[in-house]
Amino acid sequence: MTCDESLKTQAYLDGELDAADALNAEAHLESCAECQRLAADHAGLKAVMAAAPYHRAPMALRTKITAALDAEEKTDANVIPLRAKPGFWLGAGSGAGGMAIAAVLAFLVFMPANNAMVADLADAHVRSLMGEHLIDVASSDHHTVKPWFAGHSDVSPPTEDFKADGFTLVGGRADYVHGSRAAVVVYRHGAHVINLFAWADRNARLPDTSSQDGYRMVFWKQKDLDLAAVSDVDPAELDRFVELVKKSQSRE
Protein backbone atom coordinates (compact mmCIF):
# COMPACT_ATOMS: atom_id res chain seq x y z
CA MET A 1 0.00 0.00 0.00
CA THR A 2 2.68 2.46 1.05
CA CYS A 3 5.14 3.50 -1.65
CA ASP A 4 8.68 2.30 -0.97
CA GLU A 5 9.95 5.78 -1.71
CA SER A 6 7.65 7.54 0.74
CA LEU A 7 10.31 8.16 3.41
CA LYS A 8 12.61 9.55 0.73
CA THR A 9 9.82 11.77 -0.56
CA GLN A 10 9.23 12.96 2.99
CA ALA A 11 12.95 13.72 3.35
CA TYR A 12 12.75 15.71 0.11
CA LEU A 13 9.75 17.67 1.36
CA ASP A 14 11.58 18.33 4.62
CA GLY A 15 14.55 19.71 2.70
CA GLU A 16 16.85 16.94 3.91
CA LEU A 17 18.13 15.75 0.52
CA ASP A 18 21.17 16.99 -1.35
CA ALA A 19 20.79 18.30 -4.90
CA ALA A 20 21.26 14.96 -6.67
CA ASP A 21 18.85 13.05 -4.43
CA ALA A 22 16.38 15.92 -4.60
CA LEU A 23 16.30 15.64 -8.41
CA ASN A 24 15.59 11.91 -8.15
CA ALA A 25 12.86 12.54 -5.61
CA GLU A 26 11.27 15.19 -7.83
CA ALA A 27 11.29 12.81 -10.78
CA HIS A 28 9.64 10.13 -8.66
CA LEU A 29 7.08 12.57 -7.33
CA GLU A 30 5.93 13.37 -10.86
CA SER A 31 4.92 9.80 -11.52
CA CYS A 32 3.74 8.56 -8.11
CA ALA A 33 0.18 9.41 -7.12
CA GLU A 34 0.74 8.24 -3.56
CA CYS A 35 3.74 10.48 -3.02
CA GLN A 36 1.81 13.37 -4.55
CA ARG A 37 -0.84 12.82 -1.91
CA LEU A 38 1.92 12.75 0.69
CA ALA A 39 3.22 16.09 -0.62
CA ALA A 40 -0.25 17.63 -0.41
CA ASP A 41 -0.69 16.37 3.17
CA HIS A 42 2.77 17.64 4.03
CA ALA A 43 1.90 21.14 2.82
CA GLY A 44 -1.48 21.00 4.57
CA LEU A 45 0.07 19.99 7.86
CA LYS A 46 2.68 22.71 7.56
CA ALA A 47 -0.14 25.26 7.21
CA VAL A 48 -1.92 23.82 10.25
CA MET A 49 1.23 23.79 12.34
CA ALA A 50 1.88 27.41 11.45
CA ALA A 51 -1.17 28.15 13.61
CA ALA A 52 0.18 26.14 16.53
CA PRO A 53 1.06 28.30 19.52
CA TYR A 54 4.77 28.67 20.20
CA HIS A 55 5.16 28.86 23.96
CA ARG A 56 7.76 31.44 24.88
CA ALA A 57 9.31 31.29 28.32
CA PRO A 58 7.43 33.63 30.67
CA MET A 59 9.43 36.44 32.24
CA ALA A 60 8.83 35.05 35.73
CA LEU A 61 10.48 31.77 34.73
CA ARG A 62 13.41 33.61 33.15
CA THR A 63 13.92 35.54 36.37
CA LYS A 64 13.72 32.38 38.46
CA ILE A 65 16.30 30.64 36.30
CA THR A 66 18.65 33.60 36.41
CA ALA A 67 18.43 33.58 40.21
CA ALA A 68 19.06 29.83 40.33
CA LEU A 69 22.11 30.21 38.07
CA ASP A 70 23.42 33.06 40.26
CA ALA A 71 23.15 30.82 43.31
CA GLU A 72 24.79 27.95 41.46
CA GLU A 73 27.63 30.16 40.33
CA LYS A 74 28.36 31.23 43.89
CA THR A 75 28.85 27.62 44.96
CA ASP A 76 30.84 26.99 41.78
CA ALA A 77 33.34 29.70 42.58
CA ASN A 78 34.53 27.79 45.65
CA VAL A 79 35.06 24.51 43.86
CA ILE A 80 37.93 23.54 41.60
CA PRO A 81 36.54 22.23 38.30
CA LEU A 82 35.87 18.52 38.57
CA ARG A 83 38.04 17.38 35.71
CA ALA A 84 40.92 19.73 36.23
CA LYS A 85 43.93 17.65 37.13
CA PRO A 86 46.59 19.64 38.96
CA GLY A 87 49.28 18.84 36.40
CA PHE A 88 47.09 20.03 33.64
CA TRP A 89 46.95 23.54 34.97
CA LEU A 90 50.67 23.92 35.66
CA GLY A 91 52.12 26.74 33.67
CA ALA A 92 48.72 28.18 33.03
CA GLY A 93 49.43 30.93 35.47
CA SER A 94 47.97 31.24 38.92
CA GLY A 95 44.96 32.91 40.42
CA ALA A 96 41.44 33.12 39.15
CA GLY A 97 42.38 35.08 36.02
CA GLY A 98 44.84 32.41 34.97
CA MET A 99 42.26 29.71 35.63
CA ALA A 100 39.70 31.48 33.49
CA ILE A 101 42.14 31.88 30.64
CA ALA A 102 43.21 28.27 30.93
CA ALA A 103 39.57 27.18 30.84
CA VAL A 104 38.98 29.08 27.63
CA LEU A 105 42.17 27.73 26.08
CA ALA A 106 41.26 24.20 27.07
CA PHE A 107 37.88 24.66 25.47
CA LEU A 108 39.41 25.89 22.23
CA VAL A 109 42.11 23.27 22.10
CA PHE A 110 40.01 20.25 22.96
CA MET A 111 36.84 21.10 21.12
CA PRO A 112 38.00 19.94 17.67
CA ALA A 113 39.78 16.93 19.12
CA ASN A 114 36.61 15.84 20.88
CA ASN A 115 34.49 16.38 17.77
CA ALA A 116 36.86 14.20 15.81
CA MET A 117 36.84 11.59 18.56
CA VAL A 118 33.05 11.55 18.73
CA ALA A 119 32.87 11.18 14.95
CA ASP A 120 35.52 8.43 15.10
CA LEU A 121 33.60 6.51 17.74
CA ALA A 122 30.34 6.82 15.79
CA ASP A 123 32.09 5.59 12.65
CA ALA A 124 33.73 2.69 14.46
CA HIS A 125 30.36 1.77 15.95
CA VAL A 126 28.59 1.91 12.58
CA ARG A 127 31.39 -0.11 10.92
CA SER A 128 31.01 -2.78 13.56
CA LEU A 129 27.24 -2.93 12.98
CA MET A 130 27.72 -3.35 9.25
CA GLY A 131 29.30 -6.68 10.07
CA GLU A 132 32.64 -5.55 8.75
CA HIS A 133 34.50 -6.08 11.95
CA LEU A 134 32.40 -6.58 15.05
CA ILE A 135 34.32 -9.26 16.84
CA ASP A 136 37.85 -10.66 16.80
CA VAL A 137 37.32 -12.97 19.71
CA ALA A 138 33.80 -14.34 20.07
CA SER A 139 33.14 -15.48 23.56
CA SER A 140 30.75 -14.89 26.40
CA ASP A 141 33.39 -16.03 28.86
CA HIS A 142 35.36 -13.14 30.27
CA HIS A 143 38.12 -15.58 31.22
CA THR A 144 38.67 -15.99 27.47
CA VAL A 145 38.14 -12.40 26.40
CA LYS A 146 40.36 -10.87 29.05
CA PRO A 147 43.57 -12.71 28.12
CA TRP A 148 42.90 -12.14 24.43
CA PHE A 149 43.13 -8.40 25.04
CA ALA A 150 46.40 -8.90 26.90
CA GLY A 151 47.93 -10.08 23.63
CA HIS A 152 46.14 -7.72 21.26
CA SER A 153 45.73 -4.42 22.99
CA ASP A 154 47.65 -1.83 24.99
CA VAL A 155 45.02 -1.76 27.67
CA SER A 156 43.07 -4.19 29.77
CA PRO A 157 39.39 -3.28 29.52
CA PRO A 158 36.67 -4.50 31.88
CA THR A 159 35.19 -7.68 30.42
CA GLU A 160 32.61 -8.88 32.91
CA ASP A 161 29.46 -10.50 31.53
CA PHE A 162 26.24 -8.80 32.73
CA LYS A 163 23.92 -11.42 31.32
CA ALA A 164 21.80 -11.46 34.48
CA ASP A 165 21.18 -7.75 33.97
CA GLY A 166 20.34 -8.16 30.29
CA PHE A 167 23.70 -7.19 28.80
CA THR A 168 25.36 -10.24 27.29
CA LEU A 169 29.07 -10.25 26.59
CA VAL A 170 29.57 -11.45 23.02
CA GLY A 171 33.23 -10.78 22.43
CA GLY A 172 35.96 -8.26 21.83
CA ARG A 173 38.04 -6.71 19.11
CA ALA A 174 40.98 -4.39 18.59
CA ASP A 175 40.11 -1.11 16.90
CA TYR A 176 41.45 2.39 16.43
CA VAL A 177 39.94 5.50 17.96
CA HIS A 178 41.31 8.87 17.05
CA GLY A 179 44.69 7.53 16.14
CA SER A 180 45.28 5.31 19.12
CA ARG A 181 44.72 1.62 19.66
CA ALA A 182 41.57 0.83 21.57
CA ALA A 183 40.16 -2.33 23.05
CA VAL A 184 36.48 -2.81 22.28
CA VAL A 185 34.28 -5.08 24.33
CA VAL A 186 31.03 -5.98 22.59
CA TYR A 187 27.75 -6.55 24.39
CA ARG A 188 24.26 -7.28 23.23
CA HIS A 189 21.10 -5.95 24.81
CA GLY A 190 18.06 -7.39 23.04
CA ALA A 191 18.46 -6.44 19.39
CA HIS A 192 20.99 -3.72 20.19
CA VAL A 193 24.76 -3.81 20.16
CA ILE A 194 26.77 -1.89 22.71
CA ASN A 195 30.41 -1.20 21.90
CA LEU A 196 32.48 -0.45 24.97
CA PHE A 197 35.67 1.34 23.89
CA ALA A 198 38.67 1.61 26.20
CA TRP A 199 41.97 3.33 25.56
CA ALA A 200 44.87 4.62 27.62
CA ASP A 201 44.08 7.85 29.42
CA ARG A 202 46.22 10.64 28.01
CA ASN A 203 44.81 13.37 30.20
CA ALA A 204 42.44 14.55 27.48
CA ARG A 205 39.19 16.05 28.63
CA LEU A 206 36.17 14.04 27.60
CA PRO A 207 32.57 15.12 27.14
CA ASP A 208 30.17 13.45 29.62
CA THR A 209 27.87 12.31 26.88
CA SER A 210 27.53 12.99 23.23
CA SER A 211 25.60 11.72 20.30
CA GLN A 212 26.06 11.41 16.61
CA ASP A 213 23.83 9.93 13.92
CA GLY A 214 21.43 8.78 16.60
CA TYR A 215 24.04 6.86 18.54
CA ARG A 216 24.54 7.94 22.10
CA MET A 217 27.92 7.92 23.79
CA VAL A 218 28.69 7.99 27.46
CA PHE A 219 32.26 8.84 28.44
CA TRP A 220 34.07 8.36 31.66
CA LYS A 221 37.53 7.87 33.11
CA GLN A 222 38.33 5.11 35.49
CA LYS A 223 41.71 4.01 36.77
CA ASP A 224 44.12 4.58 33.87
CA LEU A 225 41.52 4.26 31.14
CA ASP A 226 39.30 6.49 29.04
CA LEU A 227 36.07 4.67 28.33
CA ALA A 228 33.16 5.24 25.99
CA ALA A 229 29.99 3.20 25.67
CA VAL A 230 28.29 3.65 22.28
CA SER A 231 24.87 2.35 21.30
CA ASP A 232 21.42 3.14 19.99
CA VAL A 233 19.90 1.39 22.98
CA ASP A 234 17.48 3.40 25.13
CA PRO A 235 19.49 6.10 26.99
CA ALA A 236 18.31 4.88 30.39
CA GLU A 237 19.50 1.36 29.52
CA LEU A 238 22.85 2.66 28.35
CA ASP A 239 23.24 4.54 31.64
CA ARG A 240 22.37 1.37 33.54
CA PHE A 241 24.99 -0.51 31.52
CA VAL A 242 27.62 2.14 32.27
CA GLU A 243 26.88 1.89 35.99
CA LEU A 244 27.34 -1.89 35.85
CA VAL A 245 30.70 -1.52 34.10
CA LYS A 246 31.86 1.13 36.56
CA LYS A 247 30.96 -1.10 39.48
CA SER A 248 32.69 -4.15 38.02
CA GLN A 249 35.76 -2.06 37.24
CA SER A 250 36.03 -0.78 40.78
CA ARG A 251 35.83 -4.37 42.05
CA GLU A 252 38.80 -5.42 39.92
Binding site: I65, M111, N115
Partner: peptide, 20 residues
Protein backbone atom coordinates in the same frame (compact mmCIF):
# COMPACT_ATOMS: atom_id res chain seq x y z
CA UNK B 1 8.18 25.58 34.40
CA UNK B 2 9.78 23.16 36.85
CA UNK B 3 11.06 20.94 34.07
CA UNK B 4 12.70 23.84 32.26
CA UNK B 5 14.24 25.29 35.41
CA UNK B 6 15.65 21.88 36.34
CA UNK B 7 16.92 21.38 32.78
CA UNK B 8 18.67 24.76 32.64
CA UNK B 9 20.33 24.12 35.98
CA UNK B 10 21.50 20.67 34.89
CA UNK B 11 22.73 22.11 31.61
CA UNK B 12 24.70 24.76 33.45
CA UNK B 13 26.24 22.19 35.80
CA UNK B 14 27.42 20.03 32.93
CA UNK B 15 28.39 22.93 30.71
CA UNK B 16 32.07 22.28 31.43
CA UNK B 17 31.69 18.88 29.84
CA UNK B 18 29.88 20.33 26.85
CA UNK B 19 32.09 20.51 23.79
CA UNK B 20 31.40 21.96 20.43
Amino acid sequence: DDIVQEAMLRAFRSFDGFRG
